[in-house]
Amino acid sequence: MGQSKPFPATALIVEDDVMQREMLCLLLEESGYQVIQCESAEAAERVLDKNGGALCLMLTDVQLAGRMSGVELAHVAKDRHPKLDVVVTSGRPLMQPLPDGAKFWAKPWAPLDVLREAEIALS
């Protein structure tokens, strides 16, 4: 019988800036991740409901298309999937508290930060 192939790690990228979203996706895909991308927290919430157990990393901007912010999405994600590695990023100071275990990255962040976080999420 053939060897079973492990499922690739899956990351959820939530960013309404197309260029930043594409860059994040490319970095993670080159690191072996399968990537799901959304431009709004509402779309990401549907992904969390449907595929949340398969995710190991979620990166979200604070300012998103739609009514919900990335901080609110981080709370939803951690409530539903406490072991999910969640990173919230913004070019402005963070004004709302993050859920326990979530991380904040001020923009601009380095691509190496994303790769390091991807490795942490797999461990």
Rank of each mutant, 00 (worst) to 15 (best):
V62I: 14
P82D: 08
E22I: 10
D113E: 13
P111H: 15
A118D: 04
D16F: 07
P97Y: 06
P6K: 15
L84E: 09
L26W: 04
M23A: 07
A11T: 09
V14P: 06
S123E: 12
G2C: 12
G70Q: 08
W109V: 06
L55I: 15
M58Q: 04
Y33R: 04
L115T: 00
T89C: 14
A110I: 04
L73M: 09
E119R: 10
A41N: 01
P97S: 13
A118Y: 02
Q37H: 05
R116F: 08
P82M: 05
Y33P: 00
G70S: 10
E119Y: 00
L24Y: 02
Q3D: 11
M19N: 13
Q34Y: 08
V18H: 02
L24W: 00
P108M: 10
L115F: 01
Y33T: 03
A102L: 13
Q96I: 13
W109Y: 15
D113C: 08
V71S: 03
D49Y: 11
M68L: 14
V76Q: 11
E42V: 10
T60Q: 04
H81L: 15
L48Q: 03
P93N: 05
A106W: 09
E30Y: 00
L98P: 01
G101N: 13
L28P: 01
E117H: 05
T60F: 06
E45V: 11
K107H: 02
R21V: 00
Q34E: 13
G101H: 10
D17T: 05
L84T: 06
C56V: 10
Q34V: 05
S69R: 05
S90R: 15
E29S: 03
L12W: 03
Q3I: 08
P108Q: 11
A54Q: 04
L98T: 03
Q37S: 11
D16I: 06
R46H: 02
L122F: 03
L84N: 06
E72I: 08
L24T: 00
A65L: 10
G2L: 12
A77F: 06
P93Y: 02
L48M: 11
L73K: 04
V86W: 05
I36D: 04
V76W: 06
E72V: 04
I13D: 02
W105G: 06
L12R: 02
E119P: 01
L26S: 05
L112E: 14
N51A: 14
S31V: 05
G2S: 15
Q3S: 14
L48H: 02
Q37K: 09
L112R: 12
L59R: 00
D17N: 13
E30Q: 14
V18D: 07
A121V: 04
V47Q: 05
A54T: 05
C25N: 12
E29V: 04
I13G: 03
D85H: 10
V47G: 06
W109K: 07
A77K: 06
P97Q: 14
E72Q: 15
S69N: 09
A121I: 03
W109D: 07
H75E: 12
R67A: 13
T10G: 00
M68K: 11
V87D: 00
A11S: 12
D61Q: 11
W109N: 06
V18E: 08
G53C: 10
R21I: 02
F7D: 14
M19H: 09
S123M: 11
A102C: 12
S4P: 02
H81C: 15
L57V: 06
D61K: 09
A121Q: 00
G2F: 11
L122Q: 13
D49H: 14
A102D: 10
E117T: 01
Q20D: 07
H75K: 12
A106D: 09
